[in-house]
Structure formats: structure tokens, C-alpha cells
Write a protein that binds this DNA or RNA. Structure first.
Lengths: 133, 133
DNA sequence: GTATTGCTTTACGTTTACGTCAACGTCAAG
DNA sequence: CTTGACGTTGACGTAAACGTAAAGCAATAC
């Protein structure tokens, strides 16, 4: 029996299907294509999305949740996909990785701070509440 | 001798001073005021920023680094500042805190995933590089 | 057949987050 | 007293990230 799940390399989806699945509109998906973030195959004029496109879309959406602009997300995705046969290219990619990590770690610090403050605030609120009872 | 640092409750700053200090433009600061995120005193027509405004600005900018829209940031700041004398109000605040925490924790998961992927990618790049040498 | 459904492109509209003038007040320095 | 430096309020511009409407092709549904 043929695999019917996502691990099937030959499986494909329509724009509506992946849009629904990732909970975005088809317009959004096309917008990402306009910006060069995904480039689905075409069957005639119709877009055909494969596993690779799903992976990219997932990366894009996570990047968005993290607050990155689409252009920056594109450079990140391109970084992952860029050919890196020569040492000089690899060195460059490694430097980019380093830059990205710094960015992400700054965000993590901000996030931890925000969560800590939230926790402290909650503690005070609960104390106030206890005091009222 | 009078305290000359930020802990001085009476200290105040001009729009230019805090803009420079937080590395934003005065236009940005005024924009935040238009949206009701900060409301500095006025000496005549001139804006006067105090410690409370600095705290808010810091919160705003961290929110921005985390990718929150300004309107959402306002609801968060208002949450911190809202009067919460009655139990019903405290309950509401606590529910809001819970919602915010969920959001932040989702972001943290995304962030951890992104960092993990980046680490794995770096590992592969370094392996490729070693293989070339 | 025609009608509906789903895909396509083109193109203009909208919201957010400011940038960028313009036009003016005000206060200290020269 | 005029020149700057810094402040003010509009008001319009812009880039990003889509939304939305128009108009058309193409296959299935009746």
C-alpha cells in the first residue's frame, strides 16, 4: 500500500490545501512566492507544492512568529539552501550562522526577562488577592 | 549630595535625551505617545519625561524586539499599570497574565527549535569543512 | 450544454510603524 | 536682534505584509 502521509516524496498539494493546512490564506502563500521564499512547481499554470515547499513554509511561519521580517527570513532560508561546496563558502555560512545565533540569543534573553517579570507580577497579584480574602 | 542617577525620582529628560539614550528617533517616541503607550508630563507645551516613562519605553522596545505589534504592547503595559483593587479585577488580570504566558512560552519553543536547528546546521557545515581539509 | 468550483493573474486598498517635510514657537548666544 | 538649537503640531510619504476585488481559464457536476 502506498504511503499516504507527508513522508511520501512524490506527494503534492494544491495551494488551497497547504494554505488550509498551515492556516494561512492562499494570498499569503502567493505573497511568499512573490518574495521568492517558496517556488513551487507548475503543472501547466497551476502551482504544485511538494515536501520541500512545506518545509520552507513551516520555516517562514516560525520566523514570523519570532517576529522576523520576510526579507530576513528569506536570507535565512537561502542560507540553509545555499550550495556550500568550497571552503570559502562554508566559512561564510558559518559566520552567518554565528550572526543569527547572536540575534536569537538576544531574543531569548528578552523572552526570559519578560517571562520573569510576568511571574513576579503574578506573584504580587496573588499576594494582593490573598490579602483581600 | 543629591542623587544624580536614574534612581532620582525627580529627574527628568527631554524628548531628545531619551530618544538618543534608547537609540530611537524623537519621531518614534512621539508616535508611541500618539498610540497612548507613554504620556509624559508637559512643562508648558514641552514634553517632560520621568522615570516612569523610561520604564515604559524600555518595555515597549523589548516588546518590539520580541515582535509584538504596538497595540498589543499597549494592552500589556496597561495590564501592568491597571488599578486592581477588587478581587474581580485581580482575577481578570491573572487570566490575562496566563494568556500572555502561553504566548511567550510558544515563542520560547519556537526560539529553542530555531537555535537547535541552527546548531545542527552548524555541526554539518563544520563536518563538511573538516572533510575538505 | 451551463453552472459551479478552483485555480490563475493583475491591480489597487489597508494597516502598521514610523520617516519626512512644513511651518511655527522659544530661549540662550553672539 | 537675529541666528541657531531644540521644541511643537499637523500632514503627507513609505515599506511591509498582506486583503480584496476584477476578470479570466479549466475541469467536474448536473
Amino acid at each position: 500500500m502506498p504511503a499516504a502521509d507527508v513522508t511520501d516524496l512524490d506527494q503534492s498539494w494544491s495551494i488551497r490545501e497547504i494554505a488550509d493546512e498551515f492556516d494561512v490564506t492562499h494570498r499569503t502563500v502567493r505573497h511568499y512566492e512573490d518574495l521568492g521564499l517558496i517556488s513551487p512547481e507548475r503543472r501547466g499554470t497551476t502551482r504544485v507544492y511538494r515536501r520541500r515547499d512545506r518545509t520552507r513554509l513551516a520555516l517562514i511561519l516560525r520566523g514570523k512568529r519570532l517576529g522576523f521580517p520576510l526579507e530576513e527570513i528569506r536570507t535565512i532560508i537561502d542560507l540553509y539552501d545555499r550550495p556550500r561546496g568550497k571552503a570559502s563558502q562554508l566559512e561564510y555560512v558559518l559566520s552567518q550562522i554565528d550572526e543569527r545565533r547572536r540575534d536569537l540569543e538576544q531574543r531569548r534573553r528578552d523572552l526570559e526577562d519578560a517571562l520573569a517579570e510576568l511571574g513576579e507580577f503574578e506573584r504580587r497579584c496573588r499576594a494582593d488577592l490573598d490579602h483581600l480574602a
